Simulated scan of single mutants.
Amino acid sequence: MTDTFLSIRQRLDRAGIAVAGLCALHCVATIVVVSALGLGGHFLLAPEIHRIGLALALIIAAVAIGWGALKHRRAAPFVTAMTGLTFMGGALAMPHGAGEAVLTLIGVLLVSAGHLLNLRPFARKG
């Protein structure tokens, strides 16, 4: 049964990394598309996309990172991911532009790093 829970947590961590990657892709694509073509700004810059993305990242991180922290008692994945989520939340308070993109990308990288740390096997003392 423990293997089943581990497998679920690992899938959630991988999903968290995928969501973070999609967020980063969205940020970069938005800057490129809006700057180069002037198209899609109304859709790509919609606040709902950012709120839904952050909510999804929060849910996945809460379950996967929280579950991992309870299981392996390591603070690094939790602290790293929560710092990233804080950056992502701060980006929502900024007007659209370079500052928002920078905060979001920093947050996405930290959340991904937290999930990677959560996936990484840890040395057992023995």
Results as ranks from 00 to 15, higher is better:
Met82Tyr: 13
Thr86Met: 11
Val79Arg: 08
Arg74Tyr: 03
Gly89Ile: 03
Ala76Leu: 10
Thr80His: 06
Gly89Pro: 09
Met88Lys: 03
Lys71Asn: 12
Ala98Glu: 09
Ala93Val: 00
Ala69Ile: 06
Leu103Val: 00
Phe87Arg: 01
Val102Lys: 04
Gly97Gln: 07
Leu85Trp: 15
His72Phe: 14
Pro95Gly: 06
Leu103Gln: 05
Pro77Met: 08
His72Trp: 14
Val79Thr: 05
Lys71Cys: 08
Thr83Tyr: 10
Met82Val: 14
Pro95Cys: 00
Val79Ser: 02
Leu103Tyr: 14
Met88Thr: 01
Ala101Tyr: 15
Met94Pro: 04
Gly99Glu: 12
His72Leu: 07
Ala81Tyr: 06
Gly84Glu: 05
Met94Cys: 00
Ala91Ser: 15
Thr86Arg: 01
Gly90His: 09
Lys71Arg: 15
His72Tyr: 14
Ala81Val: 10
His96Lys: 10
Ala69Val: 08
Ala76Gln: 06
Gly89Gln: 11
Pro95His: 13
Met82Pro: 04
Gly90Arg: 10
Ala81Lys: 00
Glu100Arg: 14
Phe78Ile: 07
Glu100Asn: 00
Ala75Ile: 07
Glu100His: 15
Thr83Trp: 03
Ala98Cys: 06
Phe78Gly: 02
Ala75Phe: 15
Ala75Ser: 06
Leu70Trp: 14
Val102Ile: 15
His72Val: 12
Thr104His: 10
Val79Ile: 13
Gly97Asn: 11
Thr80Phe: 03
Gly89Lys: 10
Pro95Phe: 13
Pro95Trp: 01
Thr80Asp: 04
Gly97Met: 12
Leu85Asp: 05
Ala81Ile: 05
Lys71Leu: 06
Leu103Cys: 15
Ala69Gly: 07
Thr86His: 04
Ala75Lys: 02
Leu70Lys: 08
Leu92Val: 00
Pro95Ile: 02
Ala69Thr: 11
Met94Gln: 08
Gly90Thr: 07
Lys71Trp: 13
